[in-house]
Design a protein around this nucleic acid. Structure first.
Length: 421
RNA sequence: GGAGAGCUGGCUGAGUGGUCGAAAGCGGCGGUCUUGAAAACCGUUAUAGCCUCCGGGCUAUCGGGGGUUCGAAUCCCUCGCUCUCCGCCA
């Protein structure tokens, strides 16, 4: 969420930002609620001050053995009024927070204005899109042929979108996880293995609730949420904490399964590994100094891109336009890998700077080295990478005319085999 | 799952209804001393909100949330967490 003071003093900026994202907002109810809140605070604090004075007086009188009943009687109405104010305050603040949570983060000035994915800017392209002299198959043909991903048994055991990885498919999955984690480790990310179920506070912290509740599987009985990305657990790792400025940037890499209900997205992209309800992902998360967050975003993007380069998979990098970037981000890049068997780009990573939007919600600050007041950190995260689509692109890209799949060199030390088929 | 004990400032740890935002110690910061350092001594050391004639004033915060009371770290309820014992278990 945005800072209330900032919002009050920069109403135009906030409105324009939301507009660019295609979100309609109305700041008036927020200002009104905040005005009411301030009025209540003032009245309440004055009465409480009075109450504290009188209470001290009562204490003194009692100590001296004198009668205090007249003073106590006088406090009756004050007490009642304080209770009224406190109870209204609860309502007003609850309402104010709810309203504030409907205001999206403001896009960075470098973000192109736009409405649809067509307005995203391709800023980088890597690798050559191969034009083979044989018909390339989509990955689901190959995973079926080699029985390395079992979709139908997944449907039987759980449901659509919960495949089994079998034999070399499972080994390939594990190899990629290890490769991604090792690479992140070399780039200075500390590895952590987080919980994959979180409580309500954590889900709220990263913004999954209230607005994206439908995205998640909910463990209703215990009021827990299955994480849709490791971002949720890992960013909440430091919730309600003060970091030291000298420790910044704090960088983590985490492998987790991710769970997404994908409600409403049926019909498109459902073949094979393109869209699943459960998938593996290595996530990169950073807590950084506010002045360095945009430099850190570029580094994060490069860290995500590098593994695609090492795997030899052609990809391109998109700078997301204002209309396609989401509620909480200030700037976001998407990496899309080329899947030749399907002749299309598949999103495998999304690298975002949230500035202080999440940190404010989660109360994550850093204490400046010079001893100044704690300030909110900036948070960033990016996939490094999401597995199923990488597997899809890899299988399609490295298929041979004979219908085999070659494992790229860099992965062979992890898979311990060189070819499937 | 059952029984019990706890949760206090960066840390250790006092405090069971009346100036307690909270003793003391440790740590941190500043200073004196010293060629420098250590030791010793002195001082300082939370966060947030509201108001401000920008000097400051007020309020809240002792795991979270409610309540009792003129007044709550202290009493009651509730939730969470930690520890001990029992049961169960990868």
């Amino acid at each position: 969420m945005l800072d209330l003071k900032f919002l009050r003093e920069n109403r135009e900026v906030v409105i324009k930002g939301a507009e660019a994202k295609g979100i309609d907002i109305n700041l008036d109810p927020i200002i009104e609620a905040d005005d009411r809140r301030k009025a209540l605070i003032q009245e309440g604090d004055n009465l409480k001050s009075r109450r504290n004075q009188v209470s001290a007086q009562v204490g003194k009188l009692k100590k001296e053995g004198k009668d205090a009943s007249s003073v106590i009687a006088e406090m009756e109405s004050v007490k009642t009024r304080i209770q009224e104010i406190d109870s209204e305050m609860r309502e007003v603040e609850k309402n104010l927070t709810a309203l504030l949570l409907t205001i999206p983060n403001i896009p960075h000035t470098s973000v192109p204005i736009g409405k649809t994915p067509a307005d995203n800017k391709e800023i980088f392209r890597w690798g050559e899109i191969i034009k083979p002299d044989f018909p390339m198959k989509p990955h689901w043909d190959l995973t079926d042929k080699f029985e390395i991903v079992d979709f139908s048994r997944g449907s039987k055991v759980t449901g659509a979108g919960f495949p089994f990885y079998v034999g070399k498919g499972a080994l390939l999955e594990r190899a990629l996880i290890n490769f991604f984690l090792d690479h992140a480790g070399q780039r200075g990310y500390k590895e952590i293995a987080p919980p994959i179920i979180v409580n309500e506070d954590s889900a709220r912290g990263t913004g999954q609730i209230p607005d994206k509740e439908d995205l998640m599987y909910v463990v209703e009985r215990d009021q827990f949420y299955m994480i849709p990305t490791a971002e949720v657990s890992v960013t909440n790792f430091h919730r309600d904490e003060n970091l030291n400025e000298s420790d910044l940037p704090v960088k983590y890499a985490a492998y987790t399964p991710c769970f997404r209900r994908e409600a409403g997205s049926y019909g498109k992209d459902v073949r094979g590994l393109n869209r699943l309800h459960q998938f593996d992902k290595v996530e990169l998360v950073k807590f950084v100094h506010p002045l360095k967050s945009y430099d850190e975003l570029e580094l994060l993007r490069e860290d995500a891109e590098r593994v695609l380069q090492l795997l030899g998979l052609p990809y391109h990098t998109l700078l997301m336009c204002t209309g396609d970037m989401g509620f909480t981000q200030a700037k976001k890049y998407d990496l899309e890998v080329w899947a030749p068997g399907q002749q299309k780009w598949l999103e495998v990573s999304s690298c975002s700077n949230f500035e202080s939007f999440q940190a404010r919600r989660m109360n994550i600050k850093f204490r400046p080295d010079n001893g100044g007041k704690p300030e909110f950190v900036h948070t960033l995260n990016g996939s490094g990478l999401a597995l199923p689509r990488v597997v899809a692109a890899l299988i399609e890209h490295y298929q041979t005319p004979e219908g085999k799949i070659i494992i790229p060199k860099v992965l062979q030390q992890y898979t311990k085999f060189e070819v499937i088929g």
